[in-house]
């Protein structure tokens, strides 16, 4: 039974929850796995640090919470400060390199960096940075098939923005292929 715990962190408004939903949906609807998403609600979800947690498994998920994420996707310095220490020993830290300057890397984690904001800006829409991160995540973790994640992107964003978001996904995915860690 392979269980992977993933935590997405950033600040409210970055589309952290949507990133989590896309990854969970990709696993649960398009990749034949189980996936449970939980999120922190309340004041925390409106402004400062905000997180989405996804458990992905080949079998039925009983315990729905993330306790030792083996993968963390962090998009703000605050989220890094708050959450990075939770990463499992030898886990993976995926960071937005212009927004997160890691002072030190906890728990022997491997770090993957992507200038997602810049890549999003190249597409003319800074707001798709979360989707760039999702593309990069798919590329470097290989946890899910790229097709499944792509489908989940198309299935989760507003109808008029599908093309833009798929471009953002592809850009992130490509960056991962051409810049391995």
């Amino acid at each position: 039974m392979a269980v992977t715990e993933i935590k997405f962190g950033g600040f409210g408004g970055q589309g952290i929850i949507l990133a989590g939903i896309i990854v969970g949906k990709a696993a649960a609807l398009f990749d034949n796995k189980e996936a449970t998403l939980t999120q922190a609600f309340g004041p925390e979800a409106r402004g400062s640090a905000c997180s989405a947690q996804v458990v992905v498994s080949d079998d039925r998920i009983l315990y729905p919470y993330v306790t030792h994420p083996s993968i963390m996707v962090l998009m703000s310095q605050d989220a890094f400060t708050r959450y990075a220490g939770e990463v499992a020993q030898g886990g993976t830290l995926i960071i937005e390199e212009d927004l997160v300057q890691p002072a030190q890397i906890p728990n022997g984690a491997t770090v993957f960096k992507v200038p997602a904001t810049r890549l999003a800006e190249e597409l003319g829409r800074r707001m798709v940075l979360n989707i760039v991160m999702v593309g990069f995540f798919a590329s470097v973790t290989k946890l899910l098939t790229p097709e499944a994640v792509r489908k989940a992107v198309a299935d989760s964003v507003p109808r008029g923005t599908i093309d833009l978001n798929l471009k953002a996904f592809d850009k992130g995915f490509e960056w991962g292929r051409s810049h391995p860690s």
Partner: peptide, 10 residues
Amino acid sequence: DECVGHMTER
């Protein structure tokens, strides 16, 4: 409960 209400699954 709040957990089940706010938990997302297939």
